[in-house]
Design a binder for these strands. Structure first.
Length: 718
DNA sequence: AATCGTAGT
C-alpha cells in the first residue's frame, strides 16, 4: 500500500462545477479568483501525463460511493501531489474545512506543499500550506494542508474536547476541522500513521469498508521479526566478494542493476569496505578499481562503524597510490554536525591530471540516506543488508536497538539510490536465495516494536501490539495517575497528553515540578532529554572532549549536568550548538503549554540546600519506575518488577556508585546499561511514589529490605 | 568499565 485516503462528510451532490472550472480552463483560478498564470498551464500539461491523472474520473466515482478508501500506486505515479488537489477540486473544502495530507517526514511536508502550491497557482502559505513542529505555514485561507503524521496525531489528541468514555482515550479523535484526511506513505508504517489509521476507522460516519483493512494488511510482514539473524551471518569459508548478476529495479529515473554475492559474507563490515574500495588480493575487482565514474554509497549501521570504515578506507586508498583516481571519503549520520553533513554534497575530487577519470566520493551512511536524504551523483550502492532497528521487550520494559536484517522494501529503496543520475549498480552483500527467502517483505511496523507511552487502548489497530505491551502501557499510565482504575483518562492524563515531551514520565515530572519549586530547571532538563546528545566526542579529540564535559559535571548525576551548559561555550566545550538550539525551541514550546495550564514557573533558592535535591526529587515524580539499587555484590539491579542486572553507562559523569539511582534510559548494547543517571535517596522513593513502593506488593530482594528499614525509621520518627 | 539507528510532537 503506497497511500490511503480517508474522507469525511463529503458533499456528494454538487462537485461537477468546480471540477469543470479547472478542467475546462475558464481561465480563472476558483481559489484565488485571479486568472491562471502561464506557468499554471505549463505545469498542468506535465501533471496530465502522470499516471494518476488517467484515473481521475474513477477516483471521483469512488469518492461518491465511499467514505474511506485506499489507493495503491507506484512511486512516481503522482499520488502525493495530485490526489490532495483532486480532493480539493471535489468541493469538500467549501464548508470552510481543510483537506489534510500527512507525511512521515518534515522535509517531505515542506517540499511537497511547495510543489502543489505552484501546481494550483497559489502562494505557499495561502490556499496551500504546511504545518510541522515549530513552523506553521498556513493561514486563514488555507484549504489544503500538508503536515507531518506526528503533527496530526498531536492535534487528534489535544483538540478533541468532547467527553471521553472510559477506556477510550481517543474516542473522538477525528478532527472536525478537516473535510478529508489523506494518510500518505502509509506503507512506511510509522507509529503515528498506524495510530491515525486506527483512529480513522473509529471515526463516526466511517463506513469501515472491509477493503480498507484488507488492503492495509497487504503491507503487513509475512512473519515475525527476528532480530540479529542475518543470512550473511552464517559461518563459511573466507572469501573475496564476488557478485552474480541478476535482476533489475525499474527506478523512476534510471535502471539499477542488482548484484548478489554467490555465498554469504562472514564479516559484512570488512566486505563492505572491500567492495567499495578493492577486492581481495587474489582478485582485485571492485567498485573503485573496476567501475566507471560515479560516487559510491555504502550503508552501515552506526556512527562508530561508519567512522571506523572511513578511517580504514582512507588508509586503503592511500596505499593504492596515485595510479587510481583520487577519493573523498565521507561519513553521514544524523548526529554529525551540520557542516560535516553538508560535505556529502561537495563535488568529487578532480582528475589527477587532465584526461584522467574524475575522482570519486565514497559515502558511508546510516539509513538516513535510505529515505530522508537524497544525494545526486551516486551510481554505486553497497548494501550489506543490516540496519539498527528498535525492538521492544515488554517483559522488562526495555526498548533497545539491535542490528537486524533489513526488509526487501528497504533493500529496494537502497538500490534505488543508485539510479538518480544515470544507470547504476547495487552490490548486495548477501545471496539471492537469502534475499528471496530470508528477508521480510516489509519492515516490521514500528508500533509492534515500541514501548507505548500514550493512551491507546480499545483500538482497532491494523496490527495490534502484543497484549503485554498494552498492559504495560496501561499500568504505567495508572501509576502516573494519567488513567484511573477504570481506565478512564484523568485530568492529569489529558494535561500530560498535551505536553510534547518524549514519554509520559517526563510530562508527569513537568506537571509536578511547581510543587517542588523547580519548574524552570525541570523545563530545561526535559528539553535536553528530548534533544540529540549535545556532548560531541570526535575520536581525534576524545580526551579533550571528556575533559570539557568534566568541567560541566555535577557530582549528583547526569540530569543536573544538563543544567550546567551554556550555549556560548558550545564550540570550545565540544557541545553541539544545534542540539542546544533545538533544546531551546522545545523549552519554549513546553513553557507555553505550562503557562496555558496556569502552572507557575519558579526556581528554588539557588543558595539553599534544597536547590539540587528538589530537582532530583522531581525526577522521581515521573521516573519512579526507572530506579536501580546497588547490591552488595557491587552490581546494580533495577528495582521492583523484572529485576535486571545493569551497569552505569560509560558516558555517566558519576564518579561514585550511589546506593540508589534514577535513570532515563535502558540501553542494550554490549551489555545492559542505564544511561543518563542521577543519585537519589531511598527515602525519596517512599515520599514521591508511595503507591508504587508499597512493600505489600514487592518481590523479596535487597532493595525491599532497605526500604523496609526506611519505613521503620520513619515510623519511629512519627 | 569502556559508548549512542532513524523519524516525529
Amino acid at each position: 500500500m503506497q497511500a490511503s485516503g480517508q474522507k469525511r462528510k463529503l458533499d456528494v451532490g454538487d462537485t461537477s462545477g468546480l471540477m469543470a472550472s479547472t478542467a475546462s480552463g475558464t481561465g480563472v483560478n476558483p481559489y484565488t479568483n485571479r486568472p491562471y498564470s502561464r506557468r499554471f498551464y505549463e505545469i498542468l500539461e506535465t501533471r496530465k501525463r502522470l499516471p494518476v491523472w488517467e484515473q481521475k474520473d474513477e477516483f471521483f466515482e469512488m469518492m461518491r460511493k465511499n467514505q474511506t478508501m485506499v489507493l495503491v500506486g507506484e512511486t512516481g505515479s503522482g499520488k502525493t501531489t495530485q490526489i490532495p488537489s483532486f480532493m480539493v477540486d471535489t468541493g469538500v473544502t467549501r464548508g470552510k474545512r481543510m483537506v489534510a495530507c500527512t507525511q512521515p517526514r518534515r522535509v517531505a511536508a515542506m517540499s511537497v506543499s511547495k510543489r502543489v502550491a505552484e501546481e494550483m497557482d497559489v502562494e505557499l502559505g495561502e490556499e496551500v500550506g504546511y504545518t510541522i513542529r515549530f513552523e506553521d505555514m498556513t493561514g486563514t485561507k488555507t484549504i489544503l494542508k500538508y503536515m507531518t503524521d506526528g503533527m496530526l496525531l498531536r492535534e487528534a489528541r489535544c483538540h478533541a474536547q468532547t467527553a471521553r468514555p472510559p477506556g477510550l482515550a481517543m474516542a473522538d479523535p477525528l478532527l472536525e476541522r478537516y473535510a478529508a484526511v489523506i494518510l500518505d506513505e502509509a506503507h512506511e508504517r510509522t507509529l503515528s500513521t498506524d495510530i491515525l489509521f486506527g483512529a480513522a476507522e473509529e471515526a463516526p460516519g466511517s463506513s469501515r469498508p472491509r477493503e480498507t483493512r484488507d488492503h492495509a494488511r497487504l503491507c503487513r510482514p509475512a512473519r515475525p521479526h527476528q532480530g540479529g539473524r542475518h543470512p550473511a551471518a552464517r559461518p563459511q569459508a573466507r572469501g573475496h566478494v564476488r557478485h552474480t548478476r541478476r535482476g533489475q529495479v525499474p527506478g523512476r529515473l534510471h535502471p539499477v542493476e542488482i548484484f548478489y554475492t554467490p555465498e554469504p559474507e562472514r564479516d559484512y563490515l570488512e566486505a563492505a569496505t572491500r567492495t567499495a574500495c578493492r577486492g581481495a588480493r587474489t582478485r582485485p575487482c571492485h567498485v573503485h578499481l573496476c567501475e566507471g565514474e560515479g560516487d559510491i554509497l555504502v550503508f552501515l549501521t552506526g556512527e562508530q562503524e561508519i567512522e571506523d570504515a572511513c578511517r580504514k578506507t582512507k588508509q586503503e586508498v592511500d596505499n593504492l597510490g596515485d595510479q587510481v583516481p583520487d577519493v573523498l571519503v565521507l561519513p553521514l549520520y544524523s548526529t554529525l554536525p551540520m557542516d560535516r553533513q553538508r560535505q556529502i554534497f561537495d563535488p568529487p575530487p578532480p582528475p589527477r591530471k587532465p584526461g584522467d577519470p574524475m575522482g570519486r566520493k565514497i559515502i558511508f551512511s546510516t539509513n538516513i540516506a535510505e529515505t530522508s536524504l537524497t544525494i545526486d551523483g551516486i551510481v554505486y550502492v553497497v548494501d550489506p543488508g543490516f540496519a539498527k532497528q528498535k525492538v521492544y521487550n515488554p517483559r522488562i520494559r526495555v526498548e533497545s536497538l539491535l542490528v537486524s536484517p533489513i526488509s526487501k522494501a528497504s533493500a529496494h529503496q537502497r538500490a534505488g539510490r543508485a539510479g538518480r543520475t544515470k544507470p547504476g549498480k547495487c552490490f548486495r552483500l548477501y545471496t539471492e536465495v537469502a534475499y528471496k527467502t530470508e528477508l521480510m517483505e516489509q519492515t516490521y511496523p514500528e508500533i509492534l516494536r515500541s514501548n507505548l507511552g500514550s493512551d491507546l487502548v480499545h483500538f482497532d489497530f491494523m496490527d495490534p501490539p502484543a497484549p503485554e505491551t498494552l498492559m504495560r502501557a496501561l499500568e504505567l499510565l495508572n501509576y502516573l495517575g494519567a488513567l484511573d482504575d477504570e481506565g478512564a483518562l484523568t485530568e492529569l492524563g489529558s494535561m500530560m497528553a498535551e505536553l510534547p515531551a518524549g514519554h509520559c514520565p517526563q510530562a508527569k515530572m513537568l506537571l509536578y515540578s511547581p510543587q517542588l519549586s523547580c519548574s524552570n530547571e525541570i523545563l530545561s532538563v526535559v528539553s535536553m532529554l528530548n534533544t540529540p546528545n549535545p556532548f560531541m566526542r570526535p575520536r581525534e579529540a576524545a580526551k579533550a572532549a571528556d575533559e570539557a564535559k568534566a568541567r560541566f559535571q555535577h557530582v549528583d548525576g547526569d540530569h543536573l549536568t544538563l543544567l550546567n551548559e551554556s550555549a556560548s561555550w558550545c564550540y570550545d566545550n565540544f557541545l553541539n550548538a544545534r542540539s542546544m538550539k533545538s533544546a531551546d525551541s522545545i523549552r519554549a514550546q513546553l513553557m507555553r503549554v505550562m503557562n496555558r495550564f496556569g502552572l507557575e514557573l519558579k526556581s528554588p533558592d539557588f543558595n539553599s540546600k534544597e536547590y539540587y535535591t528538589n530537582i532530583r526529587k522531581c525526577l522521581l515524580a515521573g521516573f519512579f519506575m526507572q530506579v536501580a539499587h546497588l547490591e552488595r555484590t557491587g552490581h546494580y539491579l533495577t528495582v521492583k518488577d523484572n529485576q535486571a542486572v545493569v551497569a552505569l553507562h560509560p558516558s555517566t559523569v558519576l564518579q561514585h556508585k550511589p546506593e540508589w539511582c534514577v535513570y532515563n534510559e535502558f540501553v542494550l548494547t554490549s551489555k545492559n546499561y542505564i544511561r543518563m543517571v542521577s543519585d537519589i535517596k531511598g527515602d525519596w522513593l517512599i515520599e514521591l511514589a508511595p503507591h508504587y513502593y508499597d512493600l505489600k506488593n514487592f518481590p523479596s530482594c535487597e532493595a525491599k529490605r532497605t526500604l523496609e528499614r526506611i519505613y521503620l525509621k520513619k515510623g519511629r520518627a512519627a
